[in-house]
Simulated assay, not measured.
Amino acid sequence: EADFYDEAATEAQTVCGTLAAGPVEDLLSFHGRDFIDRFESEARQDRRMAWVLGGAWQFEMSDEIWNRVRLAADDTYWKRKTS
């Protein structure tokens, strides 16, 4: 877990960032109603999933799905990267 919050770039950050900015955004944009419950559940159980959600952008997600993503997300790392 420390790899996710390390100041230096890590493989974990790269992999999860790639997932967030592609497959997760796409899946939730086009099939959000079918999958958001699973993402929320996993994010509660595993901070890594919360971290991935924190790196996703709204893209084509409905406002309803996007709001649920934001509530489940841990965006502390991502906010630090943009500051």
Rank of each mutant, 00 (worst) to 15 (best):
E1M: 15
A2I: 14
A2N: 09
A2Y: 07
A2D: 11
D3K: 11
D3Q: 11
D3W: 14
F4H: 04
F4Y: 10
F4V: 01
Y5K: 03
Y5D: 04
E7P: 03
A8P: 00
T10H: 06
T10W: 09
T10P: 04
T10Y: 08
E11W: 11
A12V: 12
A12I: 12
T14W: 14
T14G: 10
V15N: 07
V15H: 08
V15W: 13
C16A: 04
C16S: 06
G17K: 07
G17F: 13
T18G: 11
T18A: 13
A20I: 02
A20E: 02
A21C: 01
A21E: 06
P23I: 11
P23G: 02
V24P: 04
V24Q: 04
E25Q: 14
D26C: 05
L27N: 04
S29T: 06
S29W: 07
F30W: 13
F30Y: 12
H31Y: 13
H31Q: 13
G32H: 09
R33P: 02
R33E: 14
R33Y: 06
D34C: 02
F35G: 00
F35T: 06
F35R: 05
I36P: 02
D37G: 01
D37W: 02
D37P: 00
F39P: 00
S41R: 13
S41A: 10
S41W: 09
E42L: 14
E42S: 11
E42T: 08
R44P: 00
R44K: 14
R44I: 01
Q45R: 07
D46V: 04
D46R: 06
D46N: 11
R47L: 14
R47Y: 08
R47V: 15
R48Q: 15
R48L: 15
R48I: 15
A50C: 06
V52G: 03
V52H: 05
G54M: 14
G55K: 11
G55P: 05
A56S: 15
A56M: 14
W57D: 11
W57F: 15
Q58F: 09
Q58H: 09
F59W: 12
F59P: 00
F59L: 12
E60P: 00
E60W: 13
E60V: 08
M61Y: 09
M61R: 07
M61C: 12
S62G: 05
D63A: 12
D63C: 04
E64I: 12
E64L: 13
E64V: 14
E64M: 12
I65H: 02
W66L: 06
N67K: 15
R68W: 09
A72G: 07
A72M: 14
A73C: 10
A73M: 13
D74A: 10
D75R: 05
T76C: 06
Y77N: 03
W78S: 00
K79H: 02
R80P: 01
R80A: 08
K81N: 02
K81D: 03
K81Q: 11
S83A: 03
S83Y: 01
